[in-house]
Every structure is written in structure tokens, then in C-alpha cells.
Design a protein around this nucleic acid. Structure first.
Length: 625
DNA sequence: GCCGTTTTCGGCCCGACTGTTTTCAGTCG
């Protein structure tokens, strides 16, 4: 049985929780407080680890574990014990003192260990339903320190908890974020509105939605916010902050600050938590104090910075760091002011709007929703792309009505005719009843100036003949090479037999990469976020082969895939493996997904030259095998 | 329990909101 990182971080969090429960009996209260925080820090690190902690231990022993920040002698030996025996003695002892269902209370918001301790000391409460019953019967109120009001609040939190909370996909919440942003922007007293938090960092999943508003009249903003029709529950509301729960189960934070604190609030509220903590420690080491209102000199209490984020970073001795990179994974050390390495990196960092073509596009010849002509038309007009590759599925993927050899050749021929008509200006698309819906996401680049549309000649647009060839269980393809070689570019992907062991899956992909006809491996891990983990792949090994064989790995931008994920992109970039960013469009609106892929690529510190479809089509084709 | 370009001991990010506290602890992000 393979041990997951989540299993280990989970048990560390439970240890921390139990230590906190224990705290009021302990004389050495402060020290214990720091001890439980150490367990949380270690758990956070493990959750963010891009590799399996068990494999790390098996390969490099306890020294491998000690390499992880925030994991020292004590915690590493506990992890070792867990890997070897499936148990941690220290945890078992703690647990035996408090025979409660820790999971229930750990995930319940609003009640921490202190409150829980008081309750379980007085009442036979052992799990969430015990607590709910006690609250309904008014038993909690009988405990001194718990008012009727607090009892009601506990019931509400249990109700919210039972609805279930999981992280939402970036693409799923995008429309709601835009809608709320619009709503807030329309308020007279709001001079600036920004969606912040993990949304601004383009994280693949979002826990709750955070908004920052600049205003001289916080009360009116906060009141309008909590009174929106989408709001189910006001969880808290003060003079500068509000915290609510939407009807659809999402939580949302609002922070209102004056203009002179905008930069500091933006930094604070964008996170990540780890990045923020590291910045505040850095400030501390310089005799400064950083909070959401600004950067202050500790001694004189003078404000040094706060209105602009860039100035704030500079005042800390750093260059500005793009939100996508704020994870405390080396960016702060590298961004020291004046660092040539950092400046070079920033100059070359991939930008929104850098993608010139989309190399995974489906048509209604298989499972897409529109014709090749329509997909091309929207790509060139609405999304400013210079080329697309039509990558319909191939014959063994029956469910998508995959194309056989002859159909592929016919399609390639048709594409050639379209290209000719585009070139001579006779290309014409009869748009059948166009959809009323609006495209999801931003149509154009968000931080680049004017787009290239005006300078661009639509007659240079090019459709590439291609396919998403199915990789069979033995790593061979379902279309022979002599056919594939007649296409402009070839992508290959796994769609079946997901549950083979890692060695088998990896060798399947390696065999495909070694095939001279395969240019790109599409969605290399096959994951669907929150739904399936995908097939296990030895990523470092695949990267080595990709580099050797000049095979490109794809970043599939569909927001339920985002495959490769950010950490793997960073590994690819470090190893000089070439990448492309594709939308996997099955409808023209899906071209907007490219934005999500670019966000992930920036989270993986990708440079423009790591991503081959930032190149004009001619140069791209020259780089292929 | 972890960590170290002034430290192997003595620190550990910071502030808002809530409740019942008459000056602060608990919880959260």
C-alpha cells in the first residue's frame, strides 16, 4: 500500500490539534504553543511537496526528510516510524487521552481546541453529531462561557460543515468572481476593486474568494457586500472586513482599505500564507513591521510604504514578485533588489497574451461542438490566435467517434483547402445560430497593452493538420507512422487503461515519446482535478526521455485538467524540457482556457522560450522532430 | 519542535472580529 503525503500531513495536524487541546493543563504554555505550530508548519510543507514523501524516504532515508524545511529531528523520526510501522507511538498516546473523533472537529470552523476542551470536559461529546445534539438540547449553554448566542453559532457552523466544503476549480468560480467584481465596481464609493487570494495567484483550485476594495466609505461597501442576494450567511462583519457564505456554499472575504494602504493590503490578501509570513519575517529582521496597512518602522512607528505593491517590495529590499510565484519556494531569496538573475527571469517570464497558436483543438468531426471552419474563425477573430492545430481523436477511441486513417487524410486535405482559401481571401464561414452565452474568461490579455490584431494579417492564419492519437496499453499508437507523417504535427495521449502500475504507465509514455512521429504528449498525467488522480507517471524519467527525444510535453489548459500541474512545469523548466500550452477546445469559447494554462505556466516559472507555441507557426514547425 | 550572514539558545507573523472579557482570549486568514 502506497502512503500518500496527505495521510502524513493529516496525522501531523491531528498531533498539533491534540497538543492544543492539552495546553491549558500545561505549565509551559508558551512553549507548547510553538510546538503545535511546528507540527502545522511541517504538515503545510508536506502538502506542498511535489514528490511522494515515502519515495523520498525510501531513496534517501531520514536525511532526505531532513532536507524538507520545517522538518527536523523529532518530526522526521516520527514520519520514519509511520512509514515503517503504520503508527506513531506519540500520536497514539495523545489520542488515548482524548477519545474523540478528531476529524470531525478538525474540519469544523469556528470552534477551536480551547472551546472544544471545555465542552468535552463537561459533556459526553465525542463527535460532531454528539455536539449537534448537545447544542440542540441547550446543554452547551449550561457551560459557563458558552452563551445562547454562541450555541446558536455552533449549530450554524455544523450546518455549513455538513454541506461539505471542498476547493473549487478556478474555471468554475471564474464567472461568479467576475460578477461580484462588477457589482462592487459599480458602487459609487469604491475606487478600486480587485479579486485577490489564490484567485489572483491563478491557483488551480480556490478555497474561498477574496475581494479587496479601496474606499473612503468602508461601511457602505461592507453593507452592500453582505446584503447581496447571493449571500446566505454573514459569518462576521466589522469596520474593515466582512466574511460571508454564498448560497452555492462558497465562502468569501472582503477587505476595505484607504488608498494609502492599497499596496500593502494587496500583498497581504493575495498571499500565499507562506509567502506573507516569509515577508513579515524579512521585515522583522530589518526592524520593520509589515501588515495589511503598510510597512512600518518598529521604533518610530513611521509608515515607510503601503500605497503600491511594487514600492512595498522595494522597501523590503526586493524586486516586485508576480502573484503566481508567491509560494515561498525560493522566489523571495531570488528577488533581492538589483539581482541580475531575477531581472533576467522577469524579462523572459511568460506573459498573458504571449501564446500565438493553440495546438489542441477539436472539431465536430469527432467530439467537438463546431466545424473546423468555425473553430478557425473564432480563433482568428475573437482570440487573436495565428494558428490552430485540429487534433481530433483517432479510431480506437470509439466513444469520441475517433477518425481512421482515411478520415485523417481526408481531413488533412480539407484543411489544406481551407488554408488556401484563407490565403487568397475567399475563406467564408457560415455561422449557424451562434450561441447566446458569453465566452468564459478574458478574451484578451490582461496585462499587455494593445493586442496585435491591428498589425496582424488574417490571411497569414494557418490551420495545422494534426490528431490526438491514442496511446494503446503497450505504448504503441492506433494509427501507423506513415499516415501520421502526412500531418503537420502530432499529439499523443493516454485515454484508456489508467490503473496500471507506475512502471507500465511510464514505459507506455516513454515508448510514445520515442516514436519519431509523435511531437507532443498531451495531458501527460491524465488527471481530472477533484475527480481522478490520473495515471501514475514517473515524471523525472519522462522528462529525461522527452529532452533526449525532443518531444514536447503539453500543459492542457482546461481548468479541470491543468496537466501538467505547476510543480511539474517547474521541473520541466529546470530541465529544459520544451512545453506547449493548449486549450483542449471542444467549442470556440474554450480558447479562453488558455489563460488558465498560462497562469499555471507562470506558477511553474516558465519563460517564453520554454513554451514553443509562443513562436510564429513557421519557427514552431522547424523546432519539431 | 524548528532554526541560525550578528544566534546551538531564545526566539518564533500580524491584526480583525467575536463574545461577555470590564482589558482579553479564541479563532481565523
Amino acid at each position: 500500500m502506497k502512503l500518500t503525503n496527505a495521510e502524513i500531513s493529516d496525522i501531523l495536524r491531528k498531533i498539533s490539534f491534540l497538543l492544543e487541546l492539552e495546553m491549558d493543563n500545561d505549565d509551559n504554555k508558551t512553549n507548547l504553543n510553538f510546538k503545535n505550530r511546528a507540527y502545522i508548519r511541517a504538515a503545510d510543507q508536506i502538502d506542498n511537496l511535489p514528490l511522494s514523501i515515502e519515495s523520498l524516504y525510501r531513496e534517501r532515508g531520514i536525511n532526505g526528510l531532513l532536507q524538507i524545511p520545517s522538518i527536523g529531528k523529532a518530526i522526521s523520526s516520527k514520519i520514519e516510524e509511520y512509514i515503517k510501522t503504520g503508527k506513531i507511538e506519540y500520536y497514539e498516546i495523545l489520542k488515548s487521552k482524548y477519545p474523540i473523533k478528531i476529524d470531525d472537529f478538525l474540519s469544523l470552523e469556528g470552534i477551536g481546541p480551547k472551546t472544544l476542551r471545555v465542552i468535552i470536559d463537561r459533556l459526553p461529546v465525542r463527535n460532531l453529531s454528539d455536539l449537534e445534539r448537545a447544542a440542540k438540547e441547550g446543554k452547551l449553554n449550561e457551560i459557563t462561557g458558552i452563551s445562547k448566542k454562541k450555541e446558536e453559532k455552533i449549530l450554524k457552523r455544523i450546518e455549513l460543515h455538513n454541506i461539505g466544503k471542498k476547493r473549487h476549480l478556478l474555471g468554475d468560480i471564474y464567472p461568479l468572481v467576475k460578477q461580484i467584481e462588477e457589482y462592487l465596481k459599480n458602487m459609487e464609493s469604491a475606487s478600486m476593486v480587485t479579486a485577490v487570494g489564490s484567485f489572483r495567484r491563478m491557483k488551480e483550485t480556490i478555497g474561498d474568494i477574496d475581494f479587496l476594495v479601496v474606499s473612503d466609505n468602508p461601511d457602505s461597501i461592507i453593507n452592500s457586500f453582505v446584503n447581496m442576494p447571493e449571500v446566505k450567511e454573514i459569518l462576521s462583519k466589522g469596520g474593515t472586513k466582512a466574511f460571508i457564505n454564498f448560497n452555492n456554499g462558497l465562502d468569501s472575504d472582503l477587505l476595505v482599505v484607504p488608498k494609502e494602504s492599497y499596496g500593502a493590503a494587496l500583498q497581504y490578501f493575495t498571499g500565499s500564507k507562506e509567502h506573507g509570513i516569509a515577508l513579515r519575517r524579512l521585515a522583522q529582521s530589518k526592524e520593520l513591521r509589515l501588515n495589511e496597512w503598510g510597512l512600518f518602522d518598529i521604533k518610530s512607528d513611521q509608515k515607510i510604504s503601503g500605497e503600491s505593491e511594487e514600492h512595498l517590495y522595494n522597501a523590503l529590499g526586493l524586486e516586485w514578485i508576480p502573484p503566481e510565484m508567491r509560494e515561498n519556494k525560493g522566489e523571495i531569496e531570488m528577488a533581492r533588489k538589483g539581482s541580475k538573475e531575477w531581472q533576467e527571469k522577469m524579462k523572459r517570464l511568460l506573459k498573458y497574451g504571449d501564446i500565438k497558436g493553440d495546438l489542441q483543438v477539436h472539431s465536430n468531426n469527432t467530439d467537438g461542438k463546431m466545424s473546423i471552419e468555425e473553430m478557425a474563425y473564432f480563433a482568428m477573430t475573437n482570440f487573436d490566435l495565428d494558428y490552430i492545430a485540429i487534433t481530433d481523436h483517432t479510431k480506437s477511441l470509439r466513444i469520441a467517434r475517433g477518425l481512421d486513417e482515411q478520415q485523417l487524410l481526408d481531413q488533412a486535405h480539407k484543411i489544406q483547402e481551407f488554408n488556401d482559401s484563407i490565403k487568397n481571401g475567399t475563406f467564408f464561414v457560415d455561422l449557424n445560430e451562434s450561441n447566446e452565452e458569453k465566452p468564459l474568461g478574458r478574451k484578451t490579455s490582461r496585462n499587455d497593452k494593445e493586442r496585435r490584431r491591428s498589425e496582424r494579417n488574417l490571411r497569414d492564419f494557418r490551420i495545422l493538420s494534426s490528431a490526438e492519437v491514442n496511446i494503446l496499453s503497450d505504448g504503441s499508437l492506433d494509427i501507423p507512422n506513415n499516415i501520421l507523417d502526412k500531418l503537420d504535427i502530432v499529439g499523443a495521449a493516454i485515454h484508456t487503461n489508467f490503473s496500471q502500475p507506475i512502471e507500465v504507465q511510464t514505459s507506455r509514455l516513454i515508448k510514445a515519446a520515442q516514436n519519431p512521429s509523435v511531437d507532443i504528449i498531451f495531458h501527460p498525467t491524465g488527471r481530472i482535478i477533484n475527480k481522478r488522480e490520473g495515471h501514475p507517471v514517473d515524471i523525472p524519467k519522462l522528462m529525461t526521455i522527452a529532452k533526449e527525444t525532443n518531444t514536447i510535453l503539453e500543459i492542457d489548459s482546461h481548468y479541470n485538467r491543468l496537466d501538467l500541474r505547476d510543480e511539474y512545469i517547474r521541473t520541466a523548466v529546470q530541465n529544459d524540457v520544451k512545453l506547449v500550452i493548449d486549450s483542449d477546445a471542444h467549442h470556440p469559447f474554450h480558447y479562453a482556457f488558455l489563460e488558465f494554462g498560462i497562469g499555471q505556466a507562470r506558477r511553474g516559472w516558465a519563460k517564453r522560450d520554454d513554451i514553443l507555441n509562443t513562436l510564429p507557426v513557421k519557427e514552431l514547425l522547424e523546432k519539431l522532430k
